[in-house]
Simulated assay, not measured.
Amino acid sequence: MRDLTDTTITEAVISTVREAKDARLAAILEALVRHAHDFVRETGLTEQEWARGMDFLTRTGQKCTPTRQEFILLSDVLGITMLVDALGNRRAAESTQNSVLGPFFRDDRPQAADGSDISAGLPGTPFFFEGLVTDDHGAPVANAGVDVWHSDADGHYDVDVPGLSDPAMRALLRTDGEGRFRFRSIRPSSYPIPDDGPVGEMMRATGRSVMRPAHLHVMIAAEGFQRVTTMLFPADDLYLDQDPVFGVKQSLVTDYASHPAGMGPYGTRTDEPYTLLRHTFVLEPGRSAHDPRPS
């Protein structure tokens, strides 16, 4: 362990983790050390650059709160979150594809009856959703737990709406005997990721857009099927090809159809134009899932 050089230090460090009782932990730490050391050598990292990097990571941790996770945001914009998701959720082409969970899921969402208005009276374009959940043979999946959540017309989730204390624009629904579920809300909007912290500094330094395309989050869990965590994006959104968290998949881009004012779905009359979105979700058989919640 003495007189280590830039070419021998890597193996010396790796030798200290190989005997870990957890073989998986040892393998991960070995790969981490090897790739991190190779990164330093490849870039010729200077002491000043190393110090700036440590400061960036320190401030990233300091920005985290119970309602904001700057490290997850950093993982998102570096594509790591989506890469982990892609490796862990390989799906058949006909099945609904996964996407990132995002930071705005809440366990304290209310349960809602079929066809409920979950907007909490917030202003925006009326938004109607009609969903169908099936297996990979087209048979309906009954009693599936379906979590939905989305932003308001200004791109804010309920946790960021001033003066709003109760959950809004989110709910846990159940599919009926035909695999169907419905709800009413307001149309979600595109929005910027939080850019007032270290991640925002990095985005500006690299000239990247911070705008996420509008989307509806949907997470579905049913006994005997793999859980799916996904999003649905409007086909006409301006930011589909510059999503800073790399979450857009072509199969998740769909038609947010606009309709004139009048009699809308569920026998509901609207005094302004509304949006209707219909979508079928196809689940793959697999390990039984419980009600949706982050893993």
Rank of each mutant, 00 (worst) to 15 (best):
D6R: 14
D6H: 15
T8F: 12
E11L: 15
E11M: 13
A12Q: 14
V13R: 15
I14E: 15
T16M: 14
E19V: 04
E19P: 01
K21Q: 15
R24C: 05
A27N: 14
A27M: 00
A27L: 00
L29K: 15
L29R: 09
A31Y: 10
L32W: 15
A36M: 12
A36Y: 09
H37G: 08
F39S: 15
V40N: 05
E42W: 11
E42V: 10
T43C: 13
G44E: 05
G44L: 05
Q48S: 13
R52Q: 15
R52N: 12
G53Y: 13
L57M: 13
T58A: 13
K63S: 15
T67W: 14
T67I: 12
Q69W: 11
F71S: 14
S75A: 12
V77C: 01
L78M: 14
I80T: 01
T81I: 03
L83G: 07
V84T: 07
V84K: 09
L87G: 01
G88Y: 04
N89R: 10
A93L: 11
A93I: 08
E94R: 10
S99Q: 11
V100Y: 06
G102C: 08
G102Q: 12
R106M: 09
D107Q: 13
D107V: 06
P110S: 00
Q111N: 06
A113L: 01
S116R: 01
S116Y: 02
S119P: 02
S119L: 09
L122V: 11
G124L: 10
F129G: 03
T134H: 08
T134S: 10
D135E: 07
D136G: 09
P140S: 00
P140A: 03
N143F: 05
N143H: 13
A144I: 03
W149K: 03
W149P: 03
D152H: 10
A153G: 13
D158N: 12
P162F: 09
L164G: 02
S165F: 11
D166P: 04
A168W: 04
L172A: 06
L172R: 14
L173F: 02
D176H: 01
G179L: 00
R180F: 01
R180W: 03
R180C: 00
R180T: 00
F183V: 06
F183R: 03
S185P: 04
R187L: 08
P188Y: 07
S190E: 13
I193C: 04
D196C: 00
V199T: 14
G200N: 00
M202I: 00
T206R: 02
G207S: 02
G207K: 06
R212S: 12
A214C: 13
H215V: 06
L216G: 01
H217K: 03
I220H: 03
Q226V: 09
R227T: 12
T229C: 09
M231S: 12
A235Q: 06
D236Q: 08
D237A: 07
L238V: 07
Y239Q: 06
Y239W: 10
Y239A: 09
Q242Y: 01
D243T: 08
F246T: 07
F246E: 02
G247H: 06
S251C: 05
V253P: 05
T254N: 05
A261K: 05
P265S: 04
P265C: 13
Y266A: 15
T270P: 05
T270I: 02
H279S: 07
R287Q: 10
P292F: 08
P294D: 06
S295L: 11
